[in-house]
Design a protein around this nucleic acid. Structure first.
Lengths: 230, 230
DNA sequence: TTGACAAGTGGACATGTGTCCGTTATAATA
DNA sequence: TATTATAACGGACACATGTCCACTTGTCAA
């Protein structure tokens, strides 16, 4: 029933002609170098230029593959994202008969939070790049003009939204939640898990030890129990 | 009781020495030019360099006053922010006896949403700059290391948070809301009103006409009625 | 009036992002 | 094997942000 696979976008390029022999090696090297540099100095401190030089390729080559640092980060995180998605989906399916939809939603919330926080800086870079793309498309046009191309939804985000929406729908069907705009609510939940927002929250508190627990409790209160309590 | 004044940070600089005569004129001209350019081409499309040249000042002069475009936007928005804050506070106080805390919270939510959406691009730039500042301070340090300076909270945001917290506290005291982490909940509400997040939401839907109403209904469902309904 | 000094100025500079385009290597084809 | 079309390459370039610093100008105090 549940499909844990996420549509893959930026890998081999299935054109007629095959990839040049060194291309694969380059891709590998770029990822490896980026991983090391990020680990050593932090994601924010490393520039695309540095990555290109360290990998021994030109900047054009780097940008040909990754339109920006966010894309690169996405590729770096792909494996973990897929593993996480598979685990999460497995858990959701495994508990389908033993837990209520709301209980599963709760579990998903907790797991997502932990996952985002663990890869915080990588996820922040991804979100920031997506954001930049978004405002770039409003370019010079009137503020809320619908003239820009529909932003092509990151498949990973879409997958998360779908999972949340599915559980929300179930919970509504079970009568555990009031009828509500499921899509919008899923967006609100994901918005609260946005790495940029989380980074902001975490920056407020100096003791990161307990903020995590506090935050989770707060999210549960809002999105599971309901703000009015029981 | 309610104090609608927001602490002002970046205006005359109350040092011993007076401001140079042309400095005030420059500030004026910069704001005027920026306002025009933004109106004509959109906030995102105008660079600091352009503003400086159009205002006839050097880049150093511009940056001496505004550390980044966000700061400039903040200054541009200051008047409206203050007017809005005064109106909002007046309404909250005027209805203190006739409406419940939850009803006033509802009104505040709706007004804040409208306000943010109206000045969307300006507010986005402010939020983006604040965000950049935040990640810059994590520079090279470990992801969640508390080594960076505490981010000096924008007074405007702080004011909004305080207002929300006040109303939440009242609502809890009245028994309309379950006991909850008021500070965190205020952050969650403000997070849902974050212009970057809203911009994302608005970009999804092409008909901006009704998304506003939908969104407000969704926010009410989550933050006023409670997700479990009544 | 004058002179010292801090606030203010402006543009060169360092660094980063992302694009462009002439060149190179290789797979497909003859 | 020779030819050719084209994916891949790499670095110069255009443009943005933000910093630095030698220079200017107004203010205050003597």
């Amino acid at each position: 029933m549940g499909d844990a696979t996420i549509p893959i976008t930026s890998v081999p390029a299935p054109t007629g002609r095959r990839e040049r022999r060194d291309a694969a090696a380059h891709r590998q090297r770029i990822l490896e170098v980026a991983r090391q540099l990020f680990a050593a100095h932090g994601v924010a401190a490393i520039s695309m230029h540095q990555i290109a030089r360290a990998a021994g390729v030109g900047q054009g080559t780097l940008y040909r593959r990754y339109a920006n640092k966010g894309e690169l980060c996405k590729d770096l995180a792909r494996d973990e994202h897929e593993r996480f998605a598979a685990e999460l989906m497995a858990w959701v399916n495994a508990t389908a008969t033993t837990l209520s939809a709301l209980e599963r939603l709760d579990g998903v919330l907790a797991r997502m939070l932990t996952f985002v926080v663990e890869g915080m800086t990588l996820h922040q870079e991804i979100a920031a790049a997506e954001w930049r793309e978004l405002v770039a498309c409003e370019d010079g046009a009137a503020v809320l003009d619908a003239s820009c191309a529909p932003p092509g939804q990151d498949p990973w985000l879409q997958w998360l939204l779908d999972l949340l929406a599915r559980l929300l729908n179930e919970a509504v069907a079970e009568g555990a939640l009031a009828p509500l705009d499921v899509t919008l609510t899923a967006h609100l939940i994901l918005g609260a898990l946005n790495p940029m927002f989380l980074g902001y929250l975490y920056a407020q508190h100096n003791e990161h030890a307990d903020i995590h627990a506090h935050l989770l409790a707060g999210l549960r209160r809002i999105f599971i129990t309901g703000i009015t309590g029981r």
